[in-house]
Amino acid sequence: MDAIRIDHLYKKYGKKEALRDVSLTVPEGQIFGLIGPSGCGKTTLVKIACGILRADGGSVELFGQKMPSKDAVSHLGYMAQAAALYPTLSGRENLAFFGSMYGMKGAALREGIERVAALVDLTEDLGKRVDQYSGGMQQRLSLATALIHRPDLLILDEPTVGIDPVLRQDIWNELRALAGEGTTILITTHVMDEAEKCDTLAMMRDGEVLAIGSALNLIERAGTASFEEAFIAFGRKEEEK
């Protein structure tokens, strides 16, 4: 079964078309990257996939359940682009709150907090208020809130923006490990070299998907030397149409 199935999705903000006939499927256990410049519709797409935003046309299914579905989102972990945290609460209080939103409590919640805090290297800082965290720490805590209930599907909107290279490496290693355990990951990025770490990629521009495939496959199809050049080549092809 596919983790995500997106069919002919349309979304307009006023007159502006944010998504135009977007279709893609993400098989279970994959790291699927959405790549494109800012404003291309990546965030709109993931928000619709998470059930936060309503589409104007088309449909989204998570694990075979049509979105929005209460059952489907309980298997979903979402990390928003801007760290969606409560600044006056401590890191632990933030994690406890989001954990309890997924019905976690008692010992399971406490263990969950320790586990994800260790994962993002914030164990020492859990007692501090989030408004005393650095930008990178907030980003990591935000990731931890998406992981606390061991979701089967992880949707991450630009998770590595503003994070230093060493930590970015760590996060990618962690994502790879999660995928190894069967977690499906949908990730958006505008950094080309990050894209190459994904199993499958969808190149997006102006609300449309230009091409879908593995990094190597896309480079081959475009007949270019690098992934970045492939992106440009697909973009040009679209303009010619």
Partner: peptide, 10 residues
């Protein structure tokens, strides 16, 4: 943005 995050939970 925390409301959106909240809406991604059940």
């Amino acid at each position: 943005g925390t409301l959106e995050k909240l809406l991604s939970t059940p």
